[in-house]
């Protein structure tokens, strides 16, 4: 809004005076810290930054940020953020949500914010459980999940949030996890840079109700073999020595193969900017759950007109065509007639 240089800030400047109240050991702490440390580097102002959330443990996030914030109602944050972002293109609008908030009660708003490509950055804390309501299964819980509401095991097939976002025409889709601050920060930075709706799934540990849900892939000793880093323009390889690669089989199916066996030229080269989301979708299906080698990083980053900008353009075009609105002319636009006064 002004030409003045953005004041230098530190992590402390982005933290509100409110005591953080997540359970000790919750993955949310490391996400909060990663973001509070990153924001001073992004060249943005606190007054132009807004965090909007729905309901759930993650939804407390705005209270801990020394920015503008709105802690709203269950599932509705993407809709509320849409109204804010399209009327205030000068703001950085972040949506903080969870798997229940975004994918269950608020599923409709999430997919429509993504397809419209509203300029918001959505951070989905996926812990595969309902934490705030004390431990029911969520739309990302694995089949057979035993919880208070599913004592005999859950029956429903979970959503794959990355697949869902890609199917909803999202222009930026990424995954990161709460055990790797640097990866989170890099992913958040990219998401923030993106014009349009950016969707980031964060594997987040709920140590009270679903401890260790991602341990098999995010644990310090497992990561090298279980996380597949996606790097634009690079062959998709992983393992301590980069010894495994993702290849496309004759049947069109993606699978993992030792690079030494198939040859590096057969390993897929990651292209974030592919217009066709098919390959990104296939990558999102590579692991059946967080117990198999799982891709992380940016799945897709493409350009499409941003919704609020397009809306503003229509207003400007209308003003160019018809001049600024004239209320008196509007009221008379349906045709008028005069009733003369008694003097006539």
């Amino acid at each position: 809004m002004t030409d003045l240089a953005v004041p230098t800030t530190t992590r402390k400047d982005w933290a509100s005076d409110q005591e953080v109240r997540w359970c000790p050991g919750c993955g949310d702490y490391s996400i909060l810290a990663a973001l509070q440390m990153l924001l001073p580097e992004l060249g943005v102002r606190r007054e132009n930054t807004v965090f909007v959330s729905g309901i759930g443990c993650a939804a407390r996030f705005p209270y801990y940020m020394q920015t503008y914030g709105m802690h709203t109602i269950h599932g509705r944050a993407p809709a509320i953020a849409t109204g804010l972002a399209v009327t205030r293109p000068d703001l950085d609008v972040w949506v903080v949500t969870g798997d229940g908030d975004a994918l269950s009660i608020g599923g409709n708003h999430l997919i429509h914010a993504l397809r419209r490509n509203v300029n918001i950055t959505i951070l989905l804390f996926n812990n595969q459980i309902y934490g705030l309501t004390k431990g029911q299964y969520s739309p990302t819980s694995e089949v057979g999940k035993v919880t208070k509401s599913t004592p005999f095991g859950s029956l429903d097939t979970p959503f794959n949030p990355i697949s869902l976002a890609l199917g909803a025409e999202a222009t930026f889709v990424a995954r990161t996890h709460d055990m790797d601050r640097k990866h989170m920060q890099e992913t958040f930075r990219r998401a923030h840079e993106h014009r349009g709706a950016a969707f980031v799934e964060i594997y987040q540990n709920c140590n009270v109700f679903n401890d260790g849900a991602f341990e098999r892939i995010t644990g310090r000793d497992q990561r090298a073999d279980m996380l597949i880093p996606l790097v634009h323009g690079q062959p998709i390889v992983f393992g301590a020595e980069g010894q495994y690669g993702v290849v496309m089989g004759e049947d069109g199916q993606l699978r993992i193969a030792p690079v030494a066996e198939v040859g590096v030229e057969r390993v897929l080269v990651h292209d974030e900017h592919r217009d066709d989301p098919g390959l990104a979708f296939a990558l999102s299906r590579l692991a059946r759950g967080p117990f198999e080698p799982t891709p992380i990083g940016v799945f897709r980053d493409v350009e499409r007109p941003e919704y609020g900008e397009a809306m503003t353009r229509q207003l400007l075009e209308a003003q160019e065509r018809r001049g600024p609105g004239d209320l008196a002319a509007l009221l008379a636009s349906g045709g008028t007639w005069e009733v003369p006064g008694p003097a006539h």
């Binding site: 606190r46 007054e47 940020m65 709105m70 802690h71």
Partner: peptide, 11 residues
């Protein structure tokens, strides 16, 4: 939002 110094949270 946009007003410096008045950052606040509602809900």
């Amino acid at each position: 939002p946009g007003t410096p110094g008045l950052e606040h949270r509602i809900g």
